[in-house]
Design a protein around this nucleic acid. Structure first.
Length: 653
RNA sequence: GCCUGGGUAGCUCAGUUGGCAGAGCAGCGCACUCGUAAUGCGCAGGUCAGCGGUUCAAAUCCGCUCCCAGGCUCCA
């Protein structure tokens, strides 16, 4: 038989050879690292007998595909371990997810896993690995499959779903045999699981895993269905790779903005105020002000106009806008002001900006009219979803609504996108991709044609940038499709930042018009856009991106000056005064504690420059400069030169 | 909302079988005057999240409530 390899070469092997034979024929090392094979584009077990002619690639353990197979195989071992420890447990699904896997169970008598169970389960899993049980594939008809899993309602439901064609299944029809209908794997006579595969050849191939947490999860993600017990874990090909992965997770935890926010005294969430409602302390407030001021400056340059609107409004406004019809579940319940009048906290700023547009008759000469506001909105997020500053119940959007003609919209959208990328870049976010969210089925207003035109316009604008575009079907707002800009942070995570929404509906609902050059009345279209998303979220992302060490221009305290002894105080004060005069945020920390302790405190606050001044400096007019990120302080730096260079850095873009 | 874990001093966390509420850091006071990531001594600090119950006795056991974290999107 002939085997075509990915590098274009061909190998002849005896008929009936397996994937493993191919790996062995290529090399010993490859055979050792192989976990599965790809045959004509399909992943298969190493021990699968190959067809007479096939394109075969060996999947090795260090590739993403190889790791997925290891993780998936480990999930089966997890299921087997749980079934050993909880006889009568029912098992549902155990897929691979990004960076790991999970498996869902229903334990007998409504039992739940606790954190302590994880260790017991891991131990049992190690026993299964030590037993080196082979993974053996067998194929069955639907009827046999239902019989094998007669005690397993979740497995039966999956088989039924496959039979009814609700789910895709990997149907293989080789050499004219009947299509595979249901495939199972067993790795000991006592444990069989329903699975498409492939798997590693035997459990002995596994072992570098960790169970990370337990959680509740609904069967098929449907909150009306059974709540199952989920165990999350991850697995790697080696102990070293596993350890590195766990260290990466720790790194992410170190960067957690909630933790850093408390350590750096930036903000807090007092219980007395309520869930998802933050207060900004002086240092956090300063960062916030700096971000807002910079944004205002850029918006001013980009010909936006600044408006202000209140936080609440009468029910009627949100009826007109459609929010009460389409967004009510995201809104706080109304306030009854008197019998006849109900007020709502605003979940969005758009209705208010529309009213500003409508305050007098508009001419085409005024368009595009760009109204900008740092608008604080309130949204009722379910108690389980609030998270630090990234998912809150009260937030301030850097929100603008642009009213323009249909002829202007494309150019306007394009310039907004350019504006966004440039502004985010100034904050050190430079890696992006775009996401296009389309009409949410059953949750949208407006005609199909309008949606089509809006979606295509956005697609066109996005397509002109050389940035990846991914689709998010059904993810748009009720009034229109949107482009969101996703940014990648310093440790590779992506965050949704900006959104641009194109809206033909609100202008209709509010009866907006302008007078055209033809002296006739026309309907404007409306663009909603927020660049930071919300200031709160944006600050959270910056904190995590920079691990709390904000760029100099955004650091609440840029320079701290430490006199070695108290007879250096006078010189220290002079240096602070010079820095302040140059527009640098500087302060002194007197010699009431040992120098080392003061340096440490300043380091913990992640202050960009720590200056130490002592006898030599007083005599020579110099400084000792301890720069953030370097552990070697520089002595004898001239004051004037330092002040000039740090002042430049302190002012930002 | 649901599942799991948690809530003890400002922060991080101990607290055994139910038997006087603990430590480190931070704060305050005194001494120390120091050249680059923790000076020493002392003092103060608590409705053990809240409410109810069991008990001679509850941080600890039971019930309810509130708050926080993770998960509930990844599909054999």
């Amino acid at each position: 038989m002939e085997v075509y390899l990915p590098d274009g070469s061909t190998k002849s092997l005896p008929a009936g050879s397996t994937g493993r034979d191919v790996a062995v024929a290529i090399g010993r090392r490859l055979a050792r690292d192989a976990v599965a094979v790809r045959v004509d584009g399909k992943e298969m077990d190493l021990d699968t007998t190959l067809p007479r002619e096939a394109h075969v690639g060996v999947i090795t353990e260090t590739t993403e595909e190889g790791r997925e197979i290891i993780r998936h195989s480990t999930a089966h071992v997890l299921a087997q371990a749980v079934l050993r420890l909880w006889p009568g447990a029912r098992y549902a699904i155990g897929p691979v997810i990004e960076g790991g896997f999970y498996y869902d169970f229903e334990l007998p008598n409504g039992a739940h896993f606790s954190d302590d169970d994880l260790e017991r389960i891991e131990e049992e899993m190690r026993a299964i690995v030590a037993e080196d049980q082979p993974f053996v594939r067998s194929e069955h008809s639907f009827e046999d499959g239902l019989a094998i899993f007669s005690e397993q309602p979740f497995k039966r439901e999956i088989i039924e779903a496959v039979r009814e064609g609700v789910r895709e299944i990997d149907v293989r029809d080789e050499e004219g045999t009947a299509p595979v209908q249901v495939s199972t794997y067993w790795n000991s006579p006592a444990f069989t699981d329903l699975c498409r595969g492939p798997h590693v050849p035997s459990t002995g191939r596994l072992g570098h895993f960790k169970l990370t947490r337990v959680a509740g999860a609904y069967w098929r993600g449907d909150e009306k269905r059974e709540q199952l017990q989920r165990i999350y874990g991850t697995a790697f090909e080696s102990e070293k790779a596993l350890r590195e992965h766990l260290e990466r997770i720790e790194e992410a935890e170190r960067r957690d903005h909630r933790k850093l926010g408390a350590q750096l005294d930036l903000f807090s969430f007092p219980d007395e105020i309520g869930s998802g409602l933050a207060v900004f302390h002086p240092k956090g407030g300063l960062i916030r002000m700096l971000i807002e001021d910079y944004s205002r400056k850029r918006h001013m340059e980009a010909a936006y106009e600044f408006v202000n609107t209140p936080h609440l409004a009468k029910e009627e406004l949100f009826r007109t806008s459609g929010h009460l019809e389409w967004f009510a579940e995201g809104m706080f319940p109304p306030m009854e002001v008197d019998e006849a009048q109900r007020y709502y906290l605003k979940p969005m700023n758009c209705p208010f900006h529309i009213l500003i547009f409508k305050s007098h008759q508009r001419s085409y000469r005024e368009l595009p009219l760009r109204l900008f506001e740092f608008g604080t909105v309130y949204r009722y997020e379910k108690s389980g979803v609030v998270h630090g500053l990234t998912r809150v119940r009260g937030m301030t959007q850097d929100d603008a609504h642009i009213f323009c003609s249909r002829e202007q919209m494309r150019e306007e959208l394009d310039s907004i996108l350019g504006f966004i990328l440039s502004l985010l870049g100034d904050f050190g976010l430079n890696e992006f991709f775009l996401e296009l969210s389309t009409r949410p089925e059953g949750k949208a207003v407006g005609s199909d044609e309008d949606w089509e035109e809006a979606t295509e316009t956005l697609r066109g604008v996005a397509g002109e940038r050389s940035i990846d575009l991914v689709m998010d079907e059904g993810g748009g707002a009720f009034y229109g499709p949107k482009i969101s800009v996703q940014a990648r942070d310093a440790i590779g995570r992506t965050h949704q930042m900006s959104t641009i929404q194109l809206d033909f509906q609100e202008p209709v609902r509010f009866g907006m018009e302008y007078v055209g050059a033809d002296n006739a009345r026309h309907r404007p279209i409306m663009i909603h856009r927020a660049l930071f998303g919300s200031i709160e979220r944006f600050i959270a992302i910056l904190i995590e991106h920079y691990a709390g060490a904000m760029p100099v221009w955004l650091s609440p305290e840029q320079v701290r000056v430490l006199p070695v002894r108290d007879d250096h105080d006078g010189y220290c004060d002079e240096v602070v005064a010079l820095l302040k005069h140059a527009g640098v945020r500087a302060s002194a920390d007197r010699a009431e504690e040992p120098l080392g302790a003061r340096v440490r405190k300043a380091k913990l606050m992640k202050i960009p420059y720590i200056l130490v001044v002592g006898d030599d400096d007083v005599n020579d007019g110099t400084l000792g400069v301890n720069r953030r990120g370097s552990d070697r302080p520089e002595r004898g730096v001239a004051v004037a030169g330092f002040v000039e260079s740090v002042a430049k850095e302190a002012h930002g873009p």
